[in-house]
Design a protein around this nucleic acid. Structure first.
Length: 436
RNA sequence: GCGAUCUUAGCUCAAUUGGUCAGAGCGCAGGAUUGUGACUCCUGAGGUUACCGGUUCGAUCCCGGUAGGUCGCCCCA
């Protein structure tokens, strides 16, 4: 016996039964993105390590301890992408897209990698669907990406997702606010945990996200960045809210919403799964989509001054929510042809292939055997009709279609189909492209 | 990175204080001549009880380690 292998920790196989849901999500996304004018881009799975250090932030957890970083054979430090915004920005800059069009709308869909402890809805290889809109700092773009995500959830029928909204201001407001926060929390550092203390030192804003017991009250009383916004940021944020209201998209102002990556400015938002009924498939993995504006990122990475907004959606979590509702079914064949040994069998098999080539989902049992087994097999794989391809039928030039899902006494349990008109019948009763 | 907990057939789980305790259901496979299914019946395949080591006359059941799963912290999608 040879060794038995197992998948790498934190990385999962997606097998056929689950894939149906994934494909529904992806198809819904592509259709919707097309309406919004977002085009797909695909960037490499690996990037120069420095790209993430610069964009995501040196003191973030992602960079500090979650990156899959290796040296390649040329001695370059490369990293499996932990997120999609930085690679997209890199491509945007590298190809000089800003010179070719004023506004660019992109989306990406693919695996991301973070080396971290596993939890519900959190894996080391996980899938994100992201939108990136470059070139405009207008509030309409903030709302555009939010509306896009909102509509996406609506189309998929994702239940109990609420929008949390905040503004982090930009260059001028941020330093003043951070100072105020430091002043607020400084007296408490003595009683803080090591973790909290480090957060206090490196990125005080993130302290607002802390769930540490003793901090709950101080956090509630902490100054809000909304009170520090400069005139322009404030107006921008107000416009975002007015537009959302106009679209009847409800939101919750969340003054503690501070996103974990360094590049965010002004608007930040999260779509959080909050089941009304107590049972939560995702407890702390409730954030299904996070995003915001990052006006400085493109310039920071060496490109022109181009504002941008976007979001990233965790598809693993999304699929989990969808599957909790109703398990997706794999579509079965439209027609299942039963065969007997002998020369006729080859005719039947050939016909199966030809019908498939014509666009129909047709199947047969390669093991042959008893007709009884073949019918059981057909019912098992969810075939809509079963027909026997035997001497009797071929001689008469007629096939008898049995509707497997119908009860025996149903008037339409069996249908007679002319052998010569088989394809025409299928075209009429089970057009290609339609799930059986 | 820290803490807790779990790991028995493909799946869901049983197995009295360590001594026929390696089982059930589902699934899969087969069943009086390879022409007709979904309910029922009969039969069968499949596990060195995650892995390694220890205690013991003897361990699925006790101890230690490793791997993996799950949950909380941290953090994030």
């Amino acid at each position: 016996m040879s060794q038995k292998f197992a998948g790498v920790k934190g990385m999962n196989d997606l097998l056929p039964p689950q894939i149906a849901t994934w494909q529904r999500v992806e198809a819904t996304a592509r259709a919707l993105f097309a309406c919004y004018g977002y085009q797909e881009i695909r960037t490499p799975i690996v990037e120069d390590t420095a790209l993430f250090v610069r964009s995501v932030g040196e003191v973030t957890d992602i960079v500090k301890k979650e990156m899959y970083t290796f040296d390649d054979k040329g001695g370059r430090s490369i990293t499996l992408r932990p997120e999609g915004t930085a690679p997209a920005a890199r491509a945007y800059i590298e190809h000089g897209i800003a010179n070719t069009e004023p506004v660019s709308r992109w989306f990406y869909l693919g695996p991301m990698f973070r080396y971290e402890r596993m939890k519900t809805g959190r894996y080391r290889q996980f899938y994100q669907l992201g939108a990136e809109a470059y070139g405009s700092g207008d509030a309409s773009m903030d709302v555009e990406v939010i509306a896009l995500a909102w509509e996406f959830f609506r189309r998929l029928g994702v239940p109990d997702v609420v929008l949390h909204l905040n503004s982090l201001g930009d260059g001028s407001a941020r330093p003043a606010y951070v100072e105020a926060l430091k002043a607020h929390f400084a007296p408490l550092t003595a009683s803080m945990s090591e973790d909290a203390k480090q957060t206090f030192e490196r990125n005080p804003m993130r302290l607002l996200d802390s769930k540490e017991e003793g901090l709950a009250d101080p956090i509630a009383k902490a100054p809000a960045i909304l009170d520090f916004l400069d005139e322009a940021s404030r107006k921008h944020f107000e416009e975002v809210q007015r537009l959302l209201a106009k679209l009847s998209i409800p939101w919750t102002l969340d003054r503690r919403l501070v996103r974990g990556l360094d590049y965010y400015t002004r608007t930040t938002f999260e779509f959080i799964y909050q089941p009304k009924s107590g049972d939560s498939a995702l407890s702390t993995a409730g954030t299904v989509c996070g995003g915001g504006r990052y006006d400085g990122l493109v310039h920071e990475l060496g490109g022109p001054e181009k504002p941008a907004v976007g979001f990233a959606m965790g598809l693993d979590r999304l699929v989990m929510l969808l599957e909790a509702g109703n398990a997706a079914q794999v579509a079965g064949p439209t027609l299942f042809i039963g065969t007997f040994d002998g020369p006729l069998r080859e005719d039947a098999v050939a016909r199966v292939m030809r019908l498939r080539n014509a666009g129909y989902h047709v199947d047969f049992d390669p093991r042959g055997g008893k007709l009884k087994r073949q019918i059981e097999r057909a019912a098992k794989v969810g075939a809509r009709y079963f027909t026997t391809w035997g001497e009797k039928e071929v001689q008469a030039g007629k096939l008898e279609f049995k509707a497997l899902a119908l009860p025996d006494d149903h008037p339409q349990k069996t249908t007679t189909v002319e052998l010569a008109g088989l394809e025409a019948w299928l075209a009429l009763n089970a057009p290609p492209g339609k799930a059986s």
